[in-house]
């Protein structure tokens, strides 16, 4: 009982620290705005993101520069780029969230077991973590995606999750190593509680803060990875308004001076990643977590 109030006090203190950090609040605001845009995309977007206007309105709407009608211009099919960017937020967030869940589902148990058990189990899991780390990240994801026959958003987040879990696992493992010999763990062991219960009920809640920080910071890099994959033609399928896919489709026309197709989606990626980076940094400072990279 006493422990619980102590830990909720910790969270409260963290919130106070977080509130004082301007960048953290900015991050929170930016992230919230992206989430709201994603949720209310169909209300905000001026056009249907997949509607191709060239068939009805002809050449004038093909690759039209930004104007009052189309704030960010149109692409070769006369689709409204602003509307596509707005709907694209859904794709990026979806990937970010689901890939994070996959990484947590793999990384937390493996990291916890490695850290708690030590010995050969730890050696084995640590070896696996090191192996995945030694892989060039993007190539590994590409190879995993190639293994699945038909690409889809689900394949993308599973593939990213399969690679991204190592960061989480490392953090959890380090936490468990420092926590496993604490008094409250010893007490639980003395009570004869089953191992699983000790790991997940007693130690894990105390190891949560760094996991949250790592996962938040990870969101940014996952969103960036998704964009990179879509850019190379893997992942989101057309006409999905994935930001990376838009950059990839638009890049050919950059050199002709039709820059809006490829440049605006990049700004959207930057804004979103920036949001999660600010938020993650803020959480780290607030929760007073030191992460080993």
């Amino acid at each position: 009982m006493a422990k619980k109030s102590r830990s909720s006090g910790l969270w409260y203190e963290a919130w106070l620290r977080f509130k004082r950090n301007k960048l953290a609040l900015l991050g929170l605001f930016m992230a919230a705005s992206v989430i709201l845009i994603a949720i209310f995309a169909s209300l905000i977007a001026p056009y249907d993101p997949v509607e191709q206007l060239i068939w009805t309105e002809g050449r004038e709407v093909r690759l039209a520069p930004p104007s009052v009608k189309h704030w960010m211009g149109t692409d070769i099919y006369g689709r409204d780029i602003l509307s596509r960017i707005i709907f694209g937020a859904r794709i990026s967030l979806q990937i970010g969230i689901f890939a994070t869940i996959v990484s947590l589902l793999i990384g937390v148990p493996l990291g916890a077991i490695a850290g708690y058990m030590g010995g050969w189990v730890d050696d084995l899991i640590s070896w696996l973590i090191n192996v995945v780390f030694a892989f060039p990240f993007l190539l590994f994801v590409l190879a995993v995606i190639a293994v699945f026959q038909s690409p889809s958003l689900r394949v993308v987040y599973i593939a990213i999750g399969l690679v991204n879990w190592v960061g989480i696992a490392r953090v959890v493992r380090a936490q468990f190593i420092s926590l496993r010999d604490r008094e409250f763990v010893e007490a639980a062991k003395a009570l004869g509680l089953p191992r699983g219960k000790i790991i997940f009920k007693h130690i894990l809640p105390n190891a949560l803060a760094p996991v949250i920080v790592q996962a938040t910071l990870g969101m940014g890099s996952i969103i960036m990875t998704e964009a990179g994959l879509a850019f190379l033609g893997f992942g989101a399928q057309p006409p999905t308004p994935s930001w990376g896919l838009m950059i990839s489709e638009g890049q050919k026309y950059l050199s002709m001076g039709k820059w809006w197709w490829a440049i605006f989606p990049g700004l959207a990626i930057m804004y979103t990643v920036l949001a999660f980076n600010f938020l993650g940094d803020g959480l780290r400072d607030a929760l007073d977590v030191r992460l080993k990279r």
Partner: peptide
């Protein structure tokens, strides 16, 4: 922080647009 948050391929395209094209 912007540099950390921008996708590397997009930075490349932006530089190309400005300095090359």
């Amino acid at each position: 922080i912007s540099g950390i948050s921008a996708p590397v391929f997009w930075v490349g395209l932006l530089l190309l647009l400005i300095f090359a094209y």
